[in-house]
Amino acid sequence: MGWLGLLPALAVAAIRIAGVNGGPRTALALALLPLAMLPAYPVLVLAALTRRRALGLAAAVNVAAHLLWLWPALPPADPVPSAARAHTLTLVSLNVGSSGLDIVGLDRLLTREQPDVLALQEVKPAYRTALTQVLHAHGLTAGLLRTDQRHLQGGGLWTRLPVLSAELADYPGARWPRLTVDVAGRPLTVQVVHTWPPHSELHRYWSADLLALARAQRDEPAVLVGDFNAGRDHAPFRELLRSGLRDAMGARGHGHVGTWPADRRLIPPLLELDHVLLPNGVHAIDAYTAPAVGSDHLPLVARLGLN
Score class of each variant (00 low, 15 high):
V123L: 03
W260F: 12
N280C: 06
Q121P: 03
S99D: 09
M1K: 14
L240C: 10
D286I: 07
A212F: 07
G2H: 00
G255D: 03
P79I: 05
T88F: 06
L49M: 14
G258T: 05
T189V: 12
L135H: 01
G105D: 05
G139N: 04
N229I: 00
A48S: 14
H254I: 01
A11C: 14
D107I: 04
L140A: 08
L273C: 08
G100Q: 01
H66P: 00
A251I: 07
L278P: 09
A251V: 07
V192F: 02
L270M: 13
P81V: 01
P197W: 09
F228G: 02
L271V: 10
W71Y: 13
H151D: 06
Y41H: 14
I17P: 04
L278Q: 01
H256G: 00
R25L: 13
N62P: 01
H234E: 14
L161E: 07
N95C: 07
A262I: 04
A284Y: 06
V163Q: 05
L33D: 01
L110F: 09
R53A: 14
D116T: 11
V104A: 11
R25K: 11
A58I: 05
G294Y: 09
P268N: 11
L144T: 04
A248N: 00
H254R: 14
A40N: 13
P172T: 02
L70S: 13
I17W: 05
A208M: 06
G255T: 03
R215H: 11
G5V: 12
L245N: 09
Q133I: 08
H199W: 15
P236D: 14
L30Y: 12
G105F: 12
T111I: 15
L67W: 12
S165Q: 14
T111N: 08
P81M: 01
A64L: 14
A262E: 03
R215D: 12
R52Y: 02
A36P: 15
Y171E: 06
A174F: 06
P197H: 05
R16T: 11
E220R: 13
L67Y: 12
A290E: 13
P177W: 02
M37V: 15
W3E: 04
N21A: 09
I285N: 01
Q153W: 10
A13V: 12
S98Q: 15
P75N: 11
P125T: 10
Q217C: 03
A126Q: 15
R160Y: 04
A13D: 15
Y171K: 07
G154N: 00
V183C: 12
V225K: 00
Q133K: 15
N307A: 15
L118K: 03
L94I: 08
G143S: 01
G19C: 13
N307F: 08
G281H: 02
V225A: 06
H234R: 10
A169L: 08
T132S: 07
W69H: 06
N280S: 15
I267P: 03
N280D: 14
V123C: 07
G156Y: 01
S93C: 09
R204W: 14
P221D: 03
L179F: 10
R25A: 12
L135K: 01
G173N: 13
S200G: 11
L210V: 10
L118G: 00
S82G: 15
P268L: 10
I17S: 03
